[in-house]
């Protein structure tokens, strides 16, 4: 600790350095906070409702499987033109069901399980009906809502 080191030049350099590093620390706090504050790409958790594509593109007597969170859901337009939505996971094992226009039923390829258009298990091994979801229309967009 000589008198040289304690000189005003030395001190101001140290203060300048301190400010620089301090700015870096503040930056590494501010950056995550700013990123956090910016609205995320998906504005909210898609666990209660999900868009399921165009309603017009879904012809009567057809169905469409869409992802609902990490599980599939199936939207069906009945021959009468009504829209219905169910969980697309077969209640027997974990297979995904599909719509069979020839049977006019929801059908599981794995063990030939069949559900009617109300989601009731009517043939084959499925022990329970499919969970049903509410269907809403937002313009032409089908929105499936889980009943809470």
């Amino acid at each position: 600790m000589t008198s040289m080191e304690k000189g005003p030049g030395r001190r101001s350099l140290l203060n300048w350095l301190l400010g620089l590093w301090g700015g870096g620390v503040l930056g590494s706090v501010a950056y995550p906070v700013a990123r956090y504050l910016a609205p995320p790409d998906i504005p909210e958790a898609a666990t209660l409702s999900v868009g399921a594509g165009s309603a017009r593109a879904l012809a009567p007597n057809s169905g469409r499987v869409v992802p609902f969170g990490s599980r599939p859901a199936i939207v069906v337009r009945t021959p009468a033109g009504e829209l219905r939505a169910f969980s697309a996971t077969c209640t027997h094992l974990d297979c995904t069901v599909q719509y069979r226009p020839d049977l006019q039923r929801i059908w599981c390829a794995c063990h030939n399980g069949q559900y009617d258009l109300n989601g009731r298990n009517v043939a084959g091994p499925p022990p329970r009906p499919l969970d049903s979801y509410d269907v809403n229309l937002n313009g032409d967009e089908i929105v499936i809502v889980r009943r809470s």
Partner: peptide, 21 residues
């Protein structure tokens, strides 16, 4: 009760740096 878990999950998975906060 219906949304608390999902919103926290949303914070830690979808919000940038949400896991950190």
């Amino acid at each position: 009760a219906t949304e608390a878990y999902e919103s926290v999950q949303f914070i830690v998975t979808r919000v940038p740096f949400g896991w950190l906060v």
